[in-house]
Design a binder for these strands. Structure first.
Lengths: 352, 352
DNA sequence: TGCTGGCACTCCTGCCTCGTGACTGCTAAG
DNA sequence: CTTAGCAGTCACGAGGCAGGAGTGCCAGCA
């Protein structure tokens, strides 16, 4: 049994450098890093024997692990964590990536679904990893407009427009619909609800407004339900994903069993959402490494998430999922840069 | 060089049975089928030597191939084709599958996107292969209603409702919008266009209607564009897919190179669409085997497609993609059964 | 003429062995 | 504290070998 990992004993400068270099090298090569590689490729000023001693201590401290006795070392979860928190140098976005992001959003549509889809694909391509994006939940949006449309004597449609331009529709049936009734009711609802958050608009409030409009009870009931359905404030947010094929390029996923469990996860929106839900509460980026993800199935993975905003509020998150051995600094820059562009785009999309 | 495959020389009854049995056995076991296996597992009434002679002739006829000298035989594309066209017995839908489909559509939503998404997942799960569904193109739908909504002095929204309940939105900006103008114009458009196919409604016709409404020229121009954008009749139809993880269960995709190229294809809606676009012109199901797919990347695959309908017209297709070694009869029944349920559901969804 | 048993031949597959190379940890000396 | 040297460990790949599955062909029989 290894000793329990001590809580971050101060690393001296040399140990820190060695740890950072092991991470860097392992991320680049996917091969366990040995003491000889370090002394030859990096200018350390000491011999490989010294590095061996240091590495042994880093292993004792829980930062490195050895896949087997006669192999080099690879970072542990704690090693990556220390690297990410303390050692990693922020990396600026490459010019061509910057440009690509800029171009993508310049010609982006104003339809939210399209934007989310395109953002996901963009992030998947640039990161060469799996990207997924949690779309804004209905309840983070603001009510703009409702229109009850008369389609025939017995069917109508409730259409709700929100701040992000999302149009939610819900059809309703009732014998004896009258166009004027619906128009009058639409106007009432609009006057009362405009500008308010979907979250705070409760069913009983709308019910009261509908009742005051003086409609047949039964019709009122149908309308309230249609309206509530169209708002659907509590529906789980959709999750779009892209780039699953990049997993195959990673040596850690040559094993088909691992690959399968991850592919299964990627196809389940609910699971993806659960993986990143808590990072929506955080202001800045979040990085989760291996076991920190809390799921046995993907202990070999890490996820970088960056929330994006609409108005003053976080409404969703961008995420990049890949092997723990991922270029954290680059992916962080990429996700952050994309999130910034998305923020700007959404702000311009607002239907004021 | 093998001789060119003769065009379907009549197979005698015994050859036909042997071919069918080889397909059946190979689909079940994924192992090349030898003459001994056939005589032992199936009651043929002749010895393995006779089967060997027959199989050699089937190979000469292009129906079977041998992976290597000392192996059994597997069906060629032509072998599968003959099996599918002439030998395969239709298989009824299993009861539990039937029930599952029924349940799924009973509680299906009335929103088209939801329905397509659920259908795709259903088909992926039941087929244990990759399923994808081409959503109805806009231009196969009928115009029901347009509503130009006034949101503020300078922004409005064009909302188009079609027969399938799809709501297309497009925002527009123009200084000095007047709610009454928009309402008046909406009414005019509705009167003229209701019930017509989106395909036949041209931009110049709408332009004429808008012009007659007596609006400022510039505003008229903006509205025509917004309306045309919302109709977007020429947009390529969306393609939803599900079940990629099932590929990993197939022995033919243990090779990561093959797997990668297929995964890449699955992520490209355009490519998926091109693979099945022509089968929308066909009345019934289509089965494409290996090279028939016309793409070098997926010669190891087959696709079963079944078109689905809305009103009198084919609007999209369900597809199942898997290894050539797929249970054609079962998947055909599955896709057909699902398409039937989808047809029924869409017919009920129509907003009359 | 068609079917069958027998037989030699081919070639994949799994298994074992063994050499090689890449590491390590340890020790003793600087 | 650092370093050179050295013995020890272990994964990995190549090569060889036996076993087995399946074929084609041939000669004999109904």
């Amino acid at each position: 049994m290894p000793d329990p990992v001590p809580l971050r004993p101060e690393l001296d400068k040399r140990k820190a450098f060695i740890l950072a270099t092991v991470v860097y090298e392992y991320v680049a090569t996917a091969e366990p890093v040995g003491s000889n590689t370090l002394t030859q490729k990096y200018n350390l000023g000491v011999s490989s024997a010294t590095i061996r001693n240091e590495m042994a201590e880093l292993e004792a401290g829980g930062y490195l692990v050895q896949p087997h006795t006669s192999a080099g070392r690879i970072p542990s979860d704690a090693g990556y964590r220390t690297y990410v928190d303390q050692l990693m140098r922020p990396e600026p976005l490459q010019n061509d990536e910057q440009r690509r992001i800029h171009d993508e959003f310049r010609e982006a549509s104003r339809e939210l679904d399209d934007v989310i889809e395109h953002t996901t694909r963009l992030l998947g391509q640039l990161s060469r990893n799996v990207a997924f994006v949690v779309a804004p939940a209905r309840n983070s949006q603001t009510f703009r407009h409702v229109q009850l449309i008369w389609l025939s004597e017995r069917t109508g449609l409730a259409i709700v427009v929100t701040s992000l331009g999302v149009v939610a529709q819900h059809p309703f049936d009732h014998p004896g619909l009258v166009a004027d009734d619906l128009t009058r009711l639409s106007n009432r609802l609009n006057m009362t609800l405009a500008g308010r958050s979907l979250r705070e608009i409760g069913a009983h409030e709308t019910a009261a407004i509908v009742r005051d409009a003086g409609l047949v009870d039964e019709l009122a009931h149908v309308l309230v339900r249609a309206f509530a359905d169209a708002m659907r404030a509590d529906a789980p947010p959709a999750v779009a994903s892209s780039g699953a094929q990049h997993l195959l390029d990673q040596p850690e996923f040559q094993d088909l069993r691992k690959l399968r469990s991850i592919l299964r996860i990627i196809e389940e929106q609910k699971v993806l959402y659960d993986l990143v839900a808590d990072s929506m509460a955080t202001e800045g980026p979040t990085i989760k490494i291996g076991h920190e993800l809390g799921s046995d199935e993907i202990t070999e993975c890490s996820i970088v998430t960056v929330p994006y905003r609409f108005g003053d509020e976080t409404v969703g998150v961008l995420a990049i999922l890949g092997p723990r051995r991922m270029p954290y600094a680059r992916l962080l820059a990429l996700a952050t840069g994309t999130a910034n562009s998305l923020n700007r785009h959404l702000a311009n999309t607002d239907i004021r």
